[in-house]
Write a protein that binds this DNA or RNA. Sequence first.
DNA 1: ATATAAACGCAATATTGTTGCATTTACCTT
DNA 2: AAGGTAAATGCAACAATATTGCGTTTATAT
Lengths: 147, 147
Amino acid sequence: MEPSPSPSILLRRAKLKVTPTRVALLRILASAKHPLSIAKIARALRQSADRVTLYRALDALAKAGIVRRIDLQHGHAHYELAQDDHHHLVCTSCGRTASIRLPHRLTVSPVTLRRTGFARVTRHALEFFGLCRSCAATAPRVSGRRN
Amino acid sequence: MEPSPSPSILLRRAKLKVTPTRVALLRILASAKHPLSIAKIARALRQSADRVTLYRALDALAKAGIVRRIDLQHGHAHYELAQDDHHHLVCTSCGRTASIRLPHRLTVSPVTLRRTGFARVTRHALEFFGLCRSCAATAPRVSGRRN
DNA sequence: ATATAAACGCAATATTGTTGCATTTACCTT
DNA sequence: AAGGTAAATGCAACAATATTGCGTTTATAT
């Protein structure tokens, strides 16, 4: 796990202004072990920033490739720093997540690309869903929203 | 491409009641070439069903494994019949989608499973994002919501 | 120091999805 | 075929998530 560059360096590289909100935001994401929901990020920022600013900042950071927006199928987006190439394993019962790596890189072959009329693939999203051990032990719930 | 069983057979198999709404819904999905948003499905049903019913029906069908809920990162869910094992290639500019197949099956190794504290994996979601040829030719747009 | 574009905060609004409850309906049993 | 029952539906209200416009503030290049 490489230490990722400091928030301000990341921001400057992307030609984004280095503002307190963005720095704090990136610090929060950097110290998180799992993808965070907007609600959790907002809580961590303790209303030092408006919701709208948060959305806009995450949007800008995602476009710059600094953060990744992830769908854990909880009904709202989650965000993490775009560091290494990993994927997520999500418990559909309690929402727990774990990071995993695949032994091979996921690619779309040039032939498939041509057949489908696409010019190029820029990224992909892969999540695995299942049950963690403790949830598998108890009666599996199915519903509800989790962070 | 195998012809999929009729809506009523699918529903009966899953011990779900065969109602006009569900049959119509499944027919719409069966004739769709791409995953559909709730909005599009609702439009196709021409308010013969309440929106709530639609949500509940899709939920039941997804739980039964008859339909799949897909995130194309347009900010809302898309649905398709759960037929064969394919994935999607999505144009981030115009929203076009194409179906693709991977040469290998995606799995999580038992070792990884144990290391992460998970009991089992039940499904996964994989989408590729990129640019289709016509969008790659023109100036790439970035924003906006598409169906 | 200052000009300028980017970022921000606030308010309003849109969109997506959910819940409770009374009514209707599919379908199983007889 | 009739009737009982749980499932499914519709309506209304609500909740959560996300977006837009606009006037003000701020980072940063000069």
